[in-house]
Design a protein around this nucleic acid. Structure first.
Lengths: 341, 341
DNA sequence: ATGAAAGCGCTAACAT
DNA sequence: ATGTTAGCGCTTTCAT
């Protein structure tokens, strides 16, 4: 139990073997006789010895640390539970696999330019998970150039990039088609920021649904927010003069904001304006009226991102992997499906 | 620019000096002549050399990594923006000081028992920030025993513990006194979990305010939640039969839940039941009615926690420091102050 | 002011 | 199966 400065050397002396043998025991190498292993393990357990991770990293060239990068965090990190849920899943995955998670939230472009190089240098970090990227995030080419193993949450056009995403196009398409089938003809869109890949895909799904039904695309019915409640509130205000009879909102947070606008404007939901959100956050179910939404498996994405990254780290170079998870339409009151009933 | 395997050794050769000298230049040691420094710096810049942080850590016994521990994260991390905001501030502080932030979210007791020892062993982590603790979190004695430098967000009874907290007692006292002054006589409390230090302090503030005004303490008017919206919703339901004319709710998230209950029960807020929350989250201002609340400086707490920890890391052992930040009563419609106007 | 040399604690050939 | 040895890349005395 006595600490002090316990090293592999002392353990070797106490066990009457060489340091290599202790190292082998610690790292579960095969070439150790059962008795020796037993003996050494005993000493290790008795002394409470734990190898110094830094020294271990220096010789083995791996640190057991995974980075999670969230660029431009300031926009919606505070308000939107998306990132907390993702982080939670990623953290859990790291805990399970005995990796340590380092968090890089980049709030400003200045921070980004300072911190990106440190992430890309592939020192300290074994691999990286990158999330919430805009279309041309400069981090990606840097990571590729430096051969840093990484996985993205959200798709990326470069085929070399590993990613886990959700089928945003189909999700949005499903939402809009659902509204159209219910008889809505002026379906508006509150989109996410133009720079976001997910937002872009959801917009495409919206357009696909309209085109397929031969419905006109009215530019006045398309407005942009930044995924926050406040931006949804403002977007809905801009939409009101164009008299939509339904709105597909690209995130639940924005949908809650839109709901607030509609309440203030005394428009009945879903009778006058039907609403479908995206995410299925906890708050969606308790909104007034409860929000119909496209559920995306956030935690699952996080868990898969970790799995994929660790696979890459431990197997080394494989062909790039792309996983696209399905979404699910969750029908509640806000879309008007339940009006007939 | 050519990478490959750039080490301090190559730089030394290129600059025609010894490795020690390069090390001195890199670390801004005084004993280097201006010319030599100039010369070496030039080579470093030209080659884009960056010392390997792991090797550096091994010799210097410091890694430049700070841990952030959030125990029992599952409860409210998803829903309540408190932690994201705190993390954001802590992350920013780390970025500023060139520390890397490692995140430890412990979701279950099993994870806790597995991960706590790794945190306490003071390998890899230079120091730790611990947040959201329950009364007797076993991590604290472990950290103290191992002499791990750490700072808590939230007070701790052991005087050796450094912490940054908010004056929860006075905050709650202010909220309740405000309600009493407005003529409310049956002021209820939706408290946080009994295990939380902050929740306990807010309860004490509530009790102090009642006692000072010689108002009876009715146990039926005190219920507990877990800081989430849902728990606030349920807590308010339990409160309704006891007919409070006001409620102090220990977090805005719970207050939003309480508001939902009151809306469903068709109780008018603030006319029939006045409400004061705690936190001043973004959603408080946009609630219907807008929520009177006790603002606490979350970001400031985070920033100060980082500053304090880094002071400790770089100055070494000082007497323990305790910072208590003030709260602020933010008056909106839900408390009834504006009824007269 | 500079360099030589001894580690930091561990892993991983290589030798036996 | 076990031990010997040479690093991993850097910092830091200690000489000079």
């Amino acid at each position: 139990m006595a600490e002090g400065k316990l090293t592999i050397r002392q353990i070797a002396e106490l066990a009457g073997v060489s340091r290599s043998t202790v190292s082998r025991v610690i790292n579960d190498h095969p070439n150790v006789s059962p008795e020796t292993r037993e003996q050494v393990s005993l000493i290790v357990a008795q002394t409470g010895f734990h190898p110094d991770p830094i020294a271990r990293s220096l010789s083995s060239r791996r640190a057991g640390i995974v980075g999670l990068v969230i660029p431009l965090a300031i926009q919606s990190l505070f308000e939107d539970p998306f990132f907390p849920r993702l982080m939670q899943a990623i953290s859990q995955g790291c805990n399970t696999h005995d990796y340590i998670l380092s968090l890089f939230l980049l709030h400003t472009l200045e921070e980004e330019t300072r911190v990106y190089p440190r992430i890309s240098r592939r020192q300290l970090l074994d691999g990286v998970i990158v999330t919430a990227t805009r279309n041309r995030d400069p981090l990606i080419p840097q990571l590729l150039a430096n051969r840093v193993p990484f996985v993205m949450q959200g798709r990326h056009e470069d085929p070399r990039v590993n990613f886990v995403e959700v089928d945003n196009v189909t999700g949005a398409y499903t939402a809009v088609t659902h509204l159209v089938r219910l008889g809505r003809r002026r379906v508006a869109l509150i989109a996410g920021p133009a720079s976001s890949v997910a937002a872009e895909d959801r917009k495409r799904g919206y357009l696909n649904a309209l085109l397929e039904r031969r419905l006109p695309v009215d530019e006045g019915l398309i407005v942009h927010g930044d995924f926050t409640e406040t931006s949804g509130y403002q977007a809905m205000q801009r939409l009101l003069p164009h008299e939509p009879d339904a709105v597909f909102v690209a995130s639940d947070s924005m949908a809650l904001g839109a709901l607030r606008t509609l309440r203030e404007a005394e428009r009945r939901v879903p009778e006058e304006v039907a609403l479908v959100g995206f995410d299925d956050l906890t708050h969606a179910a308790t909104a007034d009226p409860p929000l119909t939404t496209i559920r995306q498996p956030i935690q699952c994405m996080g868990a898969l991102a970790v799995e994929m990254l660790i696979d890459i780290l431990e197997d080394r170079a494989q062909p790039a992997r792309h996983i696209t998870l399905p979404t699910e339409l969750v029908i509640r009151a806000s879309c008007g499906s339940l009006l007939a009933a």
